[in-house]
Amino acid sequence: MKKSITLAEMGELFVAFFKIGLFTFGGGLAMLPLIEKEIIEKRNWSTKEEILDIYALSQSVPGVIAVNTATFFGNRRGGFWGAIAATTGVILPSLLVIMTIASLFVQIQGSDIILRIFNGIRAAVAGLVASAALRVVLQTAISRTAIILGLIAFALNVFTDIHAVWLIVGGAACGFILNYVLKTSGK
C-alpha cells in the first residue's frame, strides 16, 4: 500500500469512482462491470482475482457495499487520503442527483419519459451484469473443488434464505480445511 499520495492521484481516484457512482443503477453488484472497466482495464489498479477478494470482504462487513468497495480500493491506492477521494467520488453523484430531484420536486415515478429511459437502462444493466458474472464464473472454475463450491453457493443462494455472509464464511472454512489443514497435515 502506498502511504503518500499526490493530489493528481487523488483526483484520478475521485474521477474513477465518480464515474462508477454516476453509472451504477441498483445495488452493489451493478457496480462490478464498471469497476472491471475503470479500475482493471483502463487503469490497471487491480487484478480480477483481487476484485473478487475485495468484493467478498465488502459484502461480509456491515455497511453499504458500494462505499465499502470504494473505500477499500482508495485505501489500497493511497492510504487514508486515497480512501477519502474514492469514497467522496462514489457518493457525490447520488448527493447531486437526489438533491436536484428533491429540490425541484420532480415527479420521476409518474413520468412516462423517465420510465421508458429507465426500462432501457435496466435491460442494459442485466446484460452488463450477466457478462461480468459469466467472466467471474469462468475465471474461478479452475478446479473440480472450486466448481462444486460455486454450484453449492449458487443453489443455496437461489433456493434458501441463508444470508450471503454465511455462504462466504462457509467458503472460507472449506478453503481453509481443503487447502491448508489437509495439505499441511499430509506432509
Binding site: 467478498a56 474461478t140 460455486g150 453457493a153 455462504l167 462466504i168 467458503g171 472460507a172 487447502n179
Partner: peptide
C-alpha cells in the same frame, strides 16, 4: 474457498 462462493 471464498472466490468460487462469490462466483456462485
Amino acid at each position: 474457498g471464498i472466490r468460487p462462493v462469490m462466483a456462485g
